[in-house]
C-alpha cells in the first residue's frame, strides 16, 4: 500500500493542477487553510505566502489528515533565480533560511538524480537575485515543521522557476502560475512516488508484528511488557516467520509478562538451534 502523501503549496493557483492530477476534493478549511483530500491518503494544504504560514500549515495538515507517522512530505512551489530559465524544476538539495541562517539538506537518494538546486527562503519577493540560489518564501518553514513529523528523507522540496532577471515576477498571474506547475506535474509525481516508497519502507519497519494486536487484546500487559512483546514477536518473525506460535505458549497464560518469558525461552531455543 502507498504511504500517505502530504503536499504543501503557497497559492491556490499552484494547487489547482495538483488537485486535478490527484483528483483531490476540497474539504472544510483546516485551521483557516484551504484543505484537500483524495484517494490513497493524499492530502494538500494551501498555506499562503511566507515561512511562518508554511510551518503552521504543515502542523495543521498533519493533524487534519490523521497524523500519519510515516508520510511523504512535499513542498511544491515557485522560485526566482538569477538566470535559470522560467519553467525549470529543481529538487532542493539544500534549503537555507536567510533570516536565521539555518539550513536543511533533504537527502537525495534517487537514481538517477533529478536536477537539484539550493533554495534560499526569504521574507519578501526577491528582485535582485544576488546569489546563486533559487529564492522562495516557504521552504525553510516547511522543512523546519515537516522534519519534526517525518524522517528527513521524507521531506522534499520541489521548486519551479517563475522569474529571473530578464523576466521579473511582476507579470505573473494565476493562469501563468497554474501553467508553470501543470507543466511540471511529471516531476512532481515522480518525486512524490519515490518519497512515498521511502515512507512505506519506514512504515513497514515500524508496523506492529503479526499477532501483536490480538495478544494485547487478549492478555494484560504493562507498557514495558508491550514493548517486550513487540520485540519477542519481531524475533519470532526474524527467526521462524513460517512457524506458527506453539499453542502451549499461550495455554493457561493470564498475564503478558508470563507470555513474554515463555516466548523468550522458546525463541532462545530456536535461535540456538538455527
Amino acid at each position: 500500500m502507498a504511504a500517505p502523501l502530504r503536499l504543501l503549496v503557497a497559492l491556490p493557483a499552484e494547487a489547482r493542477p495538483i488537485v486535478a492530477h490527484y483528483r483531490l476534493e476540497r474539504q472544510a478549511d483546516a485551521g483557516g487553510f484551504p484543505f484537500y483530500r483524495g484517494d490513497g491518503d493524499v492530502a494538500l494544504i494551501v498555506s499562503g505566502p511566507g515561512k511562518l504560514a508554511a510551518a503552521a500549515a504543515v502542523a495543521t495538515l498533519h493533524l487534519a489528515a490523521g497524523a500519519a507517522p510515516h508520510a511523504a512530505w512535499l513542498d511544491v512551489g515557485l522560485a526566482g533565480h538569477r538566470h535559470r530559465p522560467v519553467g525549470e524544476a529543481v529538487v532542493a538539495g539544500r534549503v537555507c533560511d536567510r533570516g536565521s541562517g539555518e539550513c536543511w539538506y533533504p537527502p537525495q537518494l534517487w537514481r538517477p538524480p533529478p536536477a537539484t538546486g539550493e533554495v534560499l527562503t526569504v521574507e519578501e519577493v526577491e528582485r535582485r537575485y544576488d546569489g546563486p540560489w533559487f529564492y522562495d518564501m516557504e521552504a525553510s518553514g516547511f522543512c523546519a515543521a515537516a522534519s519534526r513529523l517525518a524522517s528527513l528523507e521524507l521531506v522534499q522540496v520541489l521548486k519551479i522557476v517563475s522569474d529571473n532577471r530578464r523576466r521579473p515576477p511582476a507579470g505573473l498571474d494565476k493562469h501563468r502560475v497554474a501553467a508553470l506547475v501543470e507543466a511540471r506535474l511529471g516531476e512532481i509525481d515522480a518525486l512524490a512516488r519515490a518519497t512515498r516508497a521511502l515512507a512505506a519502507e519506514l512504515g513497514r519497519l515500524a508496523a506492529p508484528p503479526p499477532m501483536y494486536d490480538e495478544l494485547v487484546a487478549t492478555l494484560r500487559f504493562t507498557a514495558s511488557e508491550r514493548r517486550q512483546l513487540r520485540r519477542q514477536l519481531r524475533r519470532w518473525q526474524a527467526l521462524a516467520a513460517s512457524t506458527p506460535l506453539p499453542p502451549e505458549l499461550l495455554a493457561g497464560c493470564r498475564r503478558g509478562g508470563e507470555l513474554n518469558r515463555r516466548l523468550d525461552a522458546w525463541l532462545d531455543h530456536l535461535a540456538v538451534a538455527s
Binding site: 539538506y105 537518494l109 519534526r148 528523507e153 519502507e201 519506514l202
Partner: peptide, 16 residues
C-alpha cells in the same frame, strides 16, 4: 549539520 542531525534514517540513506 548534515551528518549529526536528528531525525534521519541510516537505513534509507544506505541505499544511496
Amino acid at each position: 549539520e548534515i551528518f549529526n542531525r536528528r531525525g534521519q534514517s541510516f537505513r534509507l540513506q544506505k541505499r544511496q
